[in-house]
């Protein structure tokens, strides 16, 4: 599959995850968000940026339980809970935010 971003074609797998993580740009992130029916707010970006940093450090996309806990630690308790994260990403914060962040599907997420 491919996603059209500003006239350029970006390869994704059949679920819409980027084939090549290094191709990721903010513009691509916005385009993936549109395909997920999401409008990126600062709060959305905060989670996406967090995930990218987590991946950079540990080379994995965290499971949702781990994401929730880690967000709580870094960004505060009011954000480190599933209610907040599911409001931002209704189809699963780990799944959707990882896709937008250009990361692979979280390990353990089927």
């Amino acid at each position: 599959m491919a996603l059209d971003v500003g006239g350029k074609s970006v390869e994704t797998d059949e679920e819409g995850y980027l084939e090549n993580r290094d191709e990721w740009t903010q513009e691509i992130a916005e385009a993936i968000a549109v395909s997920e029916n999401l409008e990126m707010s600062d709060s959305h970006w905060e989670v996406v940026n967090f995930l990218r940093e987590y991946y950079e450090e540990y080379q994995i996309a965290p499971a949702v339980r781990v994401l929730t806990k880690a967000i709580g630690k870094k960004l505060g308790k009011d954000k480190g809970n599933s209610k907040y994260l599911y409001e931002l990403y209704p189809y699963g914060p780990a799944k959707q935010a990882c896709k937008i962040a250009g990361l692979p599907k979280p390990t353990g997420c089927v």
């Binding site: 450090e57 540990y58 080379q59 994995i60 965290p62 781990v66």
Partner: peptide, 14 residues
């Protein structure tokens, strides 16, 4: 190859 040694450091989070 992918260096997966940093991932062991995430085990504590899990």
């Amino acid at each position: 190859m992918k260096n997966f040694s940093p991932t062991y450091r995430a085990l504590g989070d899990y």
